[in-house]
Design a protein around this nucleic acid. Sequence first.
DNA 1: AATCTATCGCAACTTCAAGTTGCGATACCG
DNA 2: CGGTATCGCAACTTGAAGTTGCGATAGATT
Lengths: 201, 201
Amino acid sequence: MESPRPAPRPVGRGAKVREAVHAATLAELVDKGYAALTVEGVAQRAGVHKTTVYRRWKDRESLLVDALAEHLAVDVPVPDTGTIEGDLRALARSLVQSYTSPTGRAVLAAMFTGAAGLPEIAAAGGHVFRDRLTRAEPVVRRAVERGELPAGTDPGEVLKTLAAPVYLRLLVTGDPVDETTADQAARVTLAAALAGAFVPR
Amino acid sequence: MESPRPAPRPVGRGAKVREAVHAATLAELVDKGYAALTVEGVAQRAGVHKTTVYRRWKDRESLLVDALAEHLAVDVPVPDTGTIEGDLRALARSLVQSYTSPTGRAVLAAMFTGAAGLPEIAAAGGHVFRDRLTRAEPVVRRAVERGELPAGTDPGEVLKTLAAPVYLRLLVTGDPVDETTADQAARVTLAAALAGAFVPR
DNA sequence: AATCTATCGCAACTTCAAGTTGCGATACCG
DNA sequence: CGGTATCGCAACTTGAAGTTGCGATAGATT
């Protein structure tokens, strides 16, 4: 019990600045892309001076990591439709949806195709993926318990197979991605799972 | 029949310079990565002056595109083992192998995770993928003709499904990629194909 | 309402790589 | 052995990253 105010003045005008800069960062990411994103541009869009940005964030990378982390800090609900087919479809469609908005595309590009050599951002991307995958694993486990899928089916492998075609199109081929893509991914994954292709030999 | 020498002096010492700069570009890509790749660094490693590089290539992007294109201009043999299972396995293993060398990783990173906002490089990456996919389509068609796979099976979808897990691990999750990954991808793809999951509804 | 203090705006600065230019030197081709 | 294209070299411009010191401002405290 040193002082009655452990936080001297953590929230003042600073909160608004922080928010404005985050929003401006994502907006610039959408407009210009990662390579052409400049701190001065972000600052101007946020109605803030460049030095203010550098006082709150160490460098451009820290700013990016912070903005992306905040944008990704949304809880994605895990479906439970009662059948594995419905759940896989819902998961795939949810994945597609999160990357079809302009902001979603920009965030994806920044995480996986923009930040080469920036370990923190790449790590953040991998972490987000792993986290969502872990949270979705019960979908597969429930299906195994219901007897829909063979015992021993590896949840992680199933979900990676579900997500892989979506990321392939987004990052590699550049093909359009829509609900059809999601449904086809679910169809393929379900067929393979039913055939026991995800049970370790 | 204007002049007996349509090419005044296209190949002189220039060829050696070109080769040296290409090699140095890939080497720097491996050592420093795309973000930290500087034209001056490439020039020094190639034993050449910076201006010489700029005389042959318009800018850093052109240099990258050229070096990557040359590195990727190798004909990948299309397998024909007699069974679709053997062919899929061979294709997947070949894909894995091409990205497990240090140079392979560096090239992959430059194409898909390094050159955001550099349309030419991204387009080159997509083009390479599409080309190899087209050249591998006969593998699926032969399997359909042999009666191994259902009639109407979409070759492109099969091959994308085969490649997708490999790219997912390389670009998104960062999981290790080896023959096991390739074999599992082939296993899953084959199971789905046998179940008719690649026949348009 | 007056004041105190952390935060912000501003301008000037350093550093570094991209890309350019002009000129002198050199290596290749005939 | 001479001619010409190519290369080395040095000096330059440009633009963004990141830094520093000082004066101005807004928020919380009394």
